[in-house]
């Protein structure tokens, strides 16, 4: 939307591909390093080194991603992002304090991703965990995982996984499996897999069978994250279809890729 009151932008802002690529590479390298190199170390107590690498690799990669994505976003996407961040934190904090086995801290991220696209979703995920980290340090190193969730959710929306309400949980299940795999080393190396009471019960169950901490955290991540994202994607699909047409009409992403089935194309009355 261009306004007659301001000068037209001199050039269309494009995403800074180099920054995004470096950020993504940093995150991928951190993950590979953690999985391939560190598991031997955990038996004699987790090293501060691997925690530091996790923190800097994932946070730094997330920061580069955000820096690359932000200039390319439209004002309507930018205004949506704080809303998604606030929803993530408000609902995630409630779910955590209730001791649920799922987190529900990605509702805002997935909502932004569905309404405004994968780039906005990824930036929302990374920023919301960075801000939440100030109130709940547990959230901080999961910023990269949250960005990935936003990216995948936006991509799923773009290719029509939200056109049918029954497809959304399937997309959630797949995204959750990927998210759980990415989050597990973070949980294991930063916090010794400590989480909420609910998720800890799961880790304790796998540990009791004799699994190593990383394996137990991965199994817990796969269990919690798939169920969590299944619930979150379903909720967001229901929310998106319940929105009034006027609210949906302001998002070009919805129209361009026909994200929601049917009536999003026209803004005229029924």
């Amino acid at each position: 939307m261009s306004s007659p009151l301001t000068l037209p932008a001199t050039k269309a802002a494009r995403p800074r591909t180099a920054l995004v690529a470096v950020g993504a590479a940093l995150i991928a390298a951190t993950y590979l390093y953690l999985v391939l190199v560190q598991p031997a170390e955990i038996a004699e107590g987790i090293g501060g080194t691997s925690s530091l690498i996790t923190l800097f690799g994932f946070l730094g990669g997330g920061a580069l991603l955000v820096a690359g994505i932000l200039p390319s976003l439209s004002t309507s996407s930018l205004v949506l992002m704080p809303l998604g961040i606030a929803l993530n934190i408000a609902i995630g904090q409630t779910a955590g304090s209730l001791g649920l086995q799922i987190y529900l801290d990605a509702i805002g991220t997935v909502l932004v991703a569905v309404l405004a696209g994968p780039a906005a979703g990824a930036a929302t995920g990374a920023l919301s965990n960075a801000i939440w980290g100030l109130f709940n340090p547990l959230a901080l190193p999961f910023a990269a995982g949250a960005a990935l969730i936003g990216l995948l959710a936006g991509t799923a929306a773009r290719y029509g996984m939200f056109r049918r309400v029954y497809l959304a949980p399937v997309a959630g299940l797949l995204v959750g499996a990927v998210g759980g795999l990415v989050a597990a080393p973070v949980a294991a190396f930063m916090f010794g897999a400590a989480g909420t009471v609910g998720t800890n019960a799961l880790v304790a169950a796998f540990r009791a069978v004799g699994d190593s901490l990383l394996v137990a955290a991965t199994k817990q991540g796969l269990t919690s994250d798939t169920i969590d994202k299944l619930v979150v994607f379903t909720l967001v699909a229901l929310l998106a279809y319940a929105l009034p047409r006027r609210s949906r009409a302001q998002f070009p992403f919805l129209r361009r890729y026909r994200v929601l089935a049917g009536r999003t194309g026209s803004a005229t009355g029924r």
Binding site: L5, V79, P244, R246
Partner: peptide
Amino acid sequence: VPLVTGLLIDAAERTQLLEARGFSS
């Protein structure tokens, strides 16, 4: 549903206010 709808309508208004004040210039 009412929570998100209300927040989205607020956001739409804020978009116009910001644009009118040259946010993207």
